[in-house]
Design a protein around this nucleic acid. Structure first.
Lengths: 182, 182
DNA sequence: CGCCCCATGTAACTAGTTACATGATTGG
DNA sequence: CCAATCATGTAACTAGTTACATGGGGCG
């Protein structure tokens, strides 16, 4: 059960609204733990009931329904408790690999177009990560511990995309009759 | 909804029982799509109801309750249909990375032991994949298309574990006060 | 005035997890 | 005979997804 803890982490980084959290889960944290706005609103309600967070009307709310959430000591404590307990390494749920295996056994599926599409998406994401890296971690500056960790998280994403790209290119040569690699 | 299709693929590779499928999902297919035996039995029941597979008592059943399943044409067709439709690239759900981020914001969590544990697990898995590779794909032999795909799937796993290992080692240097890398 | 974005939610469903139940066969 | 493994399931719960609902604010 990691979603509430992802939300707590995000709120500690910056107190904000459910809407804004949902947008954050479309990037940054969301690259490692995806969630929809419905899940987030539900989780916020639960966490408020549990006393981990409290809501307040932000100064810029005007007449809108906007609510902000702030982490309470109990929430911070819960996050620390959770962070210290062991987790299993991520297990993969890779539908495309499954399709490849289906192709191997059926032998009549053409996965090359889909693989090219994925390759393009991975290239985009890599470029996106690289841009963030250039922005947030320009060369040579000494980093705080927190910044160094953030950088390593970003590097993990970069490494992953690079792996996908390299593998996709090799795979494409196998799936494509004509040799036309990107 | 990929589980039924993973099961279909596995059954096409070899008709077998739910029990045996469940064990297969602890390796091979399971490295890319995990499932418990409960999920598998439920899915088998659904798929039989849908006419995708049929069950029969295998010759070696004796007095046991053992049932085998065989894929029907409708099942094969459904698998082909599914394989041809587009999928989103896998999204990661990596709880450890989340904990790192929690550490960055809390600054009082020691994730080094857990990271060392994960590193060891990744090393084990890499060794395991390598052993399968040596067994199933001994050097230089020409492969059928199906075999070539299977090999590439294995290589994807190897690449992934290598990435995790390299990253973990770098991360460990950051988390560990004393420089004692494995 | 109409459309898009901000903002928060409910409802219904599907997939995945955890706990429990049951009984036969095999090997020490 | 006892424990482990084979073998198949039910029940209850938790997490994640998809569809729908509602209303305000800003802009062209």
């Amino acid at each position: 059960m990691s979603l509430p803890h992802a939300v707590l982490t995000s709120l500690l980084e910056k107190s904000t609204s459910g809407y804004d959290l949902a947008r954050r889960f479309d990037k940054s944290i969301g690259h490692f733990w995806h969630a929809t706005h419905q899940q987030i609103y539900r989780e916020l309600a639960r966490m408020e009931a549990a006393g981990w967070i409290t809501s307040f009307v932000p100064p810029d709310a005007g007449k809108t329904r906007k609510k902000h959430y702030r982490v309470q000591p109990a929430g911070r404590q819960e996050l620390a408790r959770w962070a210290a307990e062991p987790v299993a390494p991520m297990d993969l749920r890779d539908a495309f690999t499954l399709k490849l295996r289906a192709d191997a056994v059926l032998g009549e599926v053409d996965l090359a177009p889909e693989l090219r599409r994925h390759l393009a998406l991975h290239l985009d994401k890599l470029a996106y990560y690289r841009q963030i890296e250039a922005q947030d971690f320009p060369g040579g500056q000494p980093l705080s511990r927190a910044q160094a960790i953030q950088h390593m998280i970003l590097k993990k994403g970069i490494l992953y995309e690079q792996g996908e790209i390299a593998w996709s290119r090799e795979m494409l040569q196998l799936l494509q009759p004509a040799p036309d690699m990107r």
